[in-house]
């Protein structure tokens, strides 16, 4: 659905996005992670046709972003939630949505229907005649999401949809994104909230001018340090440690009364480990599996470790 090849954007001497190659399938929720100034917003702006690319190519569906005729077609397919909501504060919530609906040639009845549907869904229907300037940040954000959806776009670009929102409003927005995911829309989500990416995204990409990694959150977390089995024992002694070390040389850490063992396939290896511990006289209280968090993966890539 979104295919970028060697997409690059330079601002004078500064390269904002360098050689980005990325393929996002239909119905996929793709999370774009990266620190401030990493090129996330620039990428979205290029893909939405707000700024031109310096080099490379990108296609949305079958249309090329470099071609101005194609760009008109792309604009009908995409919905954009920019970093700054950009609502007309003097106009009411209803007027704001209606204004945008007209550009997509949606009939009056259909506009009314859709505006009512979205405003009710996002809990803003009672405030439909209130000017957007009187809205709280969360309400504005929700209204801007409704605006991005008014023409039923196949592809949604969401630039930090939950930034600056209180936890409750952020959850409403997140739940709404999950709802959109069920409707099989392709969603390109810029965020620097890793927990959000983990909850919402099918795949994530980590960018810092260059794209550093792309994979599912699970694969990324496992690729960093593999899986660890943590075994809590009643007491720990050298005999037990030696026995486990013999089975898994160099993969064992000891912390208090816990053994932390790197395993490749926990289901296959854990029974053997436990058997060795039992034979050595250890009493197992608890067995846990831990993987590194997306945060660790993110920091590793972003710091270039």
């Amino acid at each position: 659905m979104i295919d970028a090849e060697n997409l690059t954007r330079k601002f004078d001497e500064i390269t904002a996005v360098d050689d980005l190659t990325l393929h996002i399938g239909e119905g996929e929720v793709f999370g774009f992670l990266g620190p401030n100034g990493a090129g996330k917003t620039t990428t979205v702006r290029m893909l939405a046709g707000l700024i031109s690319k310096t080099s490379g190519t990108a296609r949305i569906g079958e249309y090329d972003i470099g071609n101005s005729e194609d760009m008109q077609k792309i604009r009908r397919m995409i919905g954009l939630l920019p970093e700054n909501v950009g609502l007309y504060e003097a106009l009411s919530a209803y007027q704001n949505l209606d204004y945008y609906g007209r550009f997509y040639k949606i009939s009056k009845e259909q506009r009314q229907e859709r505006i009512e549907y979205f405003l009710k869904m996002l809990g803003l229907w009672d405030q439909k005649d209130l000017s957007a300037g009187k809205f709280s940040k969360g309400m504005k954000q929700k209204l801007a999401i409704a605006r991005a959806l008014i023409h039923d776009p196949k592809i949604l670009f969401l630039d930090e949809p939950t930034a600056n929102l209180d936890p409750e409003a952020a959850k409403t927005v997140r739940d709404f994104i999950l709802e959109l995911k069920r409707e099989n829309r392709t969603i390109f989500l810029n965020t620097h909230l890793l927990s959000e990416a983990e909850k919402l995204c099918d795949r994530v990409g980590i960018i810092k001018t260059k794209l550093l990694a792309v994979d599912t959150p699970e694969n990324l977390t496992q690729s960093l340090s593999g899986i660890k089995t943590v075994i809590q024992l009643e007491t720990i002694n050298d005999k037990i440690i030696m026995a486990v070390e013999k089975l898994k040389p160099g993969k064992v850490e000891v912390s208090n009364n816990k053994l932390i063992i790197n395993v490749a396939d926990p289901e296959l290896e854990n029974p053997d480990i436990l058997k060795v511990i039992e034979t050595a006289g250890g009493r197992v209280q608890l067995v846990n599996e831990v993987t590194s968090t997306l945060e660790e993966v993110y920091l590793k890539y972003v710091r270039g470790e």
């Binding site: 046709g49 008109q72 604009r75 009908r76 954009l80 950009g86 007309y88 605006r147």
Partner: peptide, 14 residues
């Protein structure tokens, strides 16, 4: 000022 230009430019408006 209201930063409304960006969403406006993302519509099919020329």
């Amino acid at each position: 000022l209201e930063k409304t230009l960006e969403p406006l430019l993302a519509t099919p408006l020329t």
